[in-house]
Design a protein around this nucleic acid. Structure first.
Lengths: 151, 151
DNA sequence: GCTACTCCCTATAGCGGCTATAGGGTCAAG
DNA sequence: CTTGACCCTATAGCCGCTATAGGGAGTAGC
């Protein structure tokens, strides 16, 4: 009992359009069709699409997934590149985490400069002197202060 | 001594095309032009572009930056929304960090399943039983193992 | 049979934030 | 007077979808 595209979509938590997109991109093979042109999928396709979705959740792009699928379809003697791929992703993810932690610190410094107390104009302006504690945010506050002063 | 677009690019570490893009998107105002149509910028434009780039580094999108620029140009009585914006971004960034930490743990579990030792086929396959320690990665390894066994 | 409804099809355009390409004009130095 | 670095506009492409338009297929109830 083959699945129609909507069934495959439900089974994998994927949007119908996304399935067609993966097919166009060569991640899913051309499925059989009914006489009226409806796509028909098997359990293998469910597995394959699950695999793809898991890879996507791991931050892999479609080209990488294509390579992994090719290996899955017919394993080559060497899979060293798979380890390298995973290694590369770990480094990549770590770099993103580091960058986001820095960003968060900056944003928290920014937040600290606006108390939300609007007794005299904007809290950001009130609470921030020219020498901001967060150099990367100076532009905003100094300008705000200057402008506010002009009114 | 006004700056040409290349000078502005260098002064702010921005690509020339990106500057023109920001202009088209209404983040930078239409600059003066020379007789031959070259854009001419002032120090104010340098500041403005620096501001934009800093916001981008803070993960803000162009629409948000447009709003901040509008405020910068003519501050409104209330700036509560600015705090809210920053707050929203902090939450957003934290969510991204959390998600990436989970992802990293998964990838490290994946890595652990391939020793790089290819004594008998793929290390991933050798080292991984059916009951993977990382449920989200099972698909890959079980399939790999099964396929390998078929050869 | 007819209608209503849900599903399916293809083709194309849009999103954000750039980046690249094509095809040309400007300007200063040698 | 040519070379080379810069500038211009307009348009298309990147990724991974998502949305829209305009239609056909299949099923249930009347």
């Amino acid at each position: 009992m083959p699945l129609k595209i909507g069934d495959l979509a439900k089974a994998t938590g994927t949007q119908v359009v996304t399935i067609r997109y993966y097919e166009k991109e060569g991640l899913l093979r051309q499925p059989e069709r009914t006489g009226s042109g409806y796509r028909l999928y098997s359990e293998d396709d469910v597995e394959r699409l699950h695999f793809i979705r898991r890879c996507r959740q791991h931050g892999m792009n479609l080209a990488e997934i294509r390579d992994l699928l090719a290996f899955r379809d017919s394993p080559a003697p060497s899979c060293a590149w798979i380890s390298e791929l995973v290694e590369k992703h770990i480094a990549n993810v770590q770099a993103q985490i580091d960058s986001l932690l820095t960003l968060k610190a900056h944003l928290e410094a920014l937040r600290g400069t606006c108390s939300g107390d609007h007794g005299r104009g904007c809290g950001i302006i009130d609470s921030l002197g020219h020498g901001s504690s967060c150099p990367c945010c100076e532009g905003l506050h100094c300008r705000l202060e200057r402008r506010q002063g002009e009114r």
